[in-house]
């Protein structure tokens, strides 16, 4: 711990410098908010965050989907991070899970739907869906990773594929990546969000899958 004695002042200096530079920013700044506001009506949604995420900076989100997929691929490639319950069976938990999962799925759907005009959206919905998946995993649902079935993969790929398809279509039609026709923007975004939600949810769940065959695991 000797090192730490001079580590603190060493870190304090840049911290104070950064603090100062943060404070040196103007007290009031619009950022891009007024631009966002200006374009809200052509964005297809009314929640500015969703508008930014899926329309103005939809390209980031496109890549985002792949970040998630990549993380999954990375985790899988390492053999997965298996979520296992220590006890063989827990009736309370199992019951709670059976009850909670449908609720969570419903909540996800709601979040997704509401995202267009109020806080919520694909990520949040996906996260909730993922939570549902994790819970169901806890309750003993298993999937063999080595033979990750095509439907699972398709579900995982739904978001990225939808984005890719959308990109391709917009590129072909409008000549620009992810340029939605204003009239159809809302529906298109919803489609994308739905796919993304499925994808995110499944991905978050799939992170907890492991390579071992459940049957084998149960025996040990």
């Amino acid at each position: 711990m000797e090192r730490n004695r001079w580590l603190l002042p060493l870190l304090l200096t840049p911290a104070m410098g950064l603090g100062y530079s943060v404070l040196s920013l103007p007290e009031h700044a619009q950022g891009l908010q007024h631009l966002v506001a200006d374009k809200m009506e052509v964005s297809g949604v009314s929640n500015p965050v969703t508008a930014v995420l899926l329309n103005f900076r939809g390209y980031d989100t496109l890549l985002e989907m792949f970040v998630l997929l990549l993380a999954l691929l990375g985790v899988w490639s390492l053999g997965g991070l298996s979520l296992r319950r220590e006890a063989a069976s827990d009736l309370v938990l199992d019951t709670m899970v059976r009850f909670l999962v449908p609720v969570l799925i419903l909540a996800a759907a709601y979040l997704l739907w509401v995202g267009a005009h109020a806080p919520g959206g694909a990520f949040q919905a996906g996260a909730v869906l993922g939570a549902a998946g994790v819970l169901s995993l806890l309750s003993g649902w298993r999937c063999h990773l080595g033979l990750a079935p095509l439907p699972l993969r398709l579900a995982l790929a739904a978001g990225p594929v939808a984005f890719l398809a959308m990109s391709g279509c917009t590129l072909l039609i409008a000549g620009r990546l992810l340029q939605y026709p204003p009239a159809q923007a809302g529906i298109l975004i919803l489609i994308l969000e739905t796919a993304a939600t499925v994808s995110i949810g499944v991905t978050l769940t799939a992170l907890f899958l492991d390579k071992q065959h459940p049957g084998n695991k149960d025996q040990t």
Binding site: L32, L35, V36, K39, N55, F56, R57, G58, Y59, D60, A174, R176, L177, L178, Q179, Y180
Partner: peptide
């Protein structure tokens, strides 16, 4: 230049 989504900087993302 390619303005993704047709918005253009600073609102949108450019390539």
């Amino acid at each position: 230049h390619h303005a993704v989504g047709g918005w253009g900087a600073p609102l949108g993302i450019d390539l």
